[in-house]
Design a protein around this nucleic acid. Structure first.
Lengths: 165, 165
DNA sequence: CTTTATTGCGCAATGT
DNA sequence: TACATTGCGCAATAAA
């Protein structure tokens, strides 16, 4: 059933073995290396749990499900390295995607502004034309037939910016 | 007698000490736990580097800046835990932000479509009105005052049939 | 100087 | 089986 747990903020690992971090880059891709990435080598050897040190009951010495992972294995290291590579790649893509999305937002925002400006312009034109129409209609109504006297009938005299949408 | 170290792509670590992974969540925040996150405990003990074995030049035995990090230290664990928490938080935010950005893209796209539709509508209205104008102008020209002969006077001065951005 | 936030990295489980 | 993703912890460093 359950595994054993820690009486206190213990440090348990995935399976049952402490994982030892290590490093070694095949492809160095660190834009901002810390300061001294030195290639120390230490090797990760599993450290058998020490049941008599941590504060609590550690696991029974006889119950390690998968000691089968040989960290020493040639193949293991190879797989790890490949995976590390894949991980880097994946993360790079992820970041790139995020940036692209942000970029897209900016582009769309810009386009939106352009469209809004265009709408504003069209609206204005439309309102002007409509006014002209109204004006003309009034002229027709008022003096259907301009008496042969004054011919200075100016059809254009806007004065009513009735704007609507 | 040598414990660690492989002849090949070695796994060096940050400073000079192998880091032992461990785990233990104070705040359980795993939406999708693997399958059996068990809390085993192994205590990470530093594995002193072995300067006389690696297939290269390890660091001079007398130049270890900070071997002083006691993984056993209570304070150490505390700091680690806090940092782990901070990391989770930070990553969560990051993801959230990414999702928000994506959402923003969708919204902007939608709005863009709306705006384009509106532009299309306005353009159509405008063109209709202009046509009416032209027609009326023709009527005037045909019936109103035929001075003497045919005149191709066009009272309508278009302002913007073609649009540009 | 101390604490938190970010970031790059490796490991392992899991997904495809 | 290989590669891709994802959650996680560690450590270096940036930012408070």
């Amino acid at each position: 059933m359950s595994r054993r747990q820690q009486p206190k903020p213990n440090t348990a690992d995935h399976n049952g073995v402490s994982v030892i971090q290590s490093q070694a880059h095949a492809t160095s891709s660190s834009p901002s290396l810390p300061a001294a990435i030195t290639g120390l080598q230490q090797v990760p050897q599993l450290i058998p749990a020490n049941p008599s040190a941590a504060g609590g009951k550690s696991i029974p010495p006889s119950k390690m499900k998968k000691p089968s992972v040989d960290k020493d294995s040639e193949e293991y290291r190879q797989r790890r390295e490949r995976n590390n590579l894949a991980v880097k790649k994946s993360r790079m893509r992820s970041k790139q995607k995020a940036m692209d999305t942000q970029q897209r937002v900016n582009e769309l925002k810009e386009e939106n502004e352009r469209l809004e400006a265009k709408i504003k312009l069209l609206s204005k034109e439309l309102s002007v034309l409509k006014d002209l129409f109204l004006e003309h209609a009034h002229n027709l109504a008022d003096n259907v037939q301009p008496p042969s006297g004054v011919e200075g009938a100016s059809p254009v005299s806007n004065s009513n910016p009735t704007n609507g949408q």
